[in-house]
Amino acid sequence: MQRGDMWRRTAQLLAAYLLLWWLLTGGDRHSWLVGGVTVGLALAVALSLPAPAAALRISPVGLLLFIPYFLWQSLRGGIDVARRAYTPRLPLDPALIHYPLRLPPGSARIFLLNTVSLLPGTLSADVSADTLCVHLLDKQRDPELTQLEQRVAGLFAISLQERP
């Protein structure tokens, strides 16, 4: 990791922890006596963990586009699975598929892993090298993984790798 990236990461973490403490305590001024120590300790622990390959960069435009997409897909995902649970004949046709990832390893990939499980009919089951193993509730249904991958790439302002 570059020196500049290191500072950037420290600043990001510090800002995040300060915000978190403020949220948890409701901005009580006296709580900062404890809060300062807690934030310092949390920062020390976080920095002692192995650092990711690159500092986190989130594109503001990507984020603005991602939030409504994510909320809409969560709604669809919940409705889809609820409909299947309510239908008496249990319309499930599960399968495992292997999806070749085009996102580079790192934060973006971890983010993708987590979002896949919240979207309609898909559950991230395993990841190895450059392949994501996805469990589908219904293999007749398009899992829309390419679209999701593109959105995540937009969010992290990175470009997708070429498929080998």
Binding site: S74, V81, A85, L90, L92, P94, S117, L118, L123, L137
Partner: peptide
């Protein structure tokens, strides 16, 4: 319902992660 009715662990996971989080 999904937790009780779905045939295996993987399908039950779908029900948990999606329906409940939406609720």
């Amino acid at each position: 319902l999904g937790l009780l009715r779905f045939p295996d662990l993987y399908c039950r996971l779908h029900a948990l992660t999606k329906a409940d989080n939406l609720g």
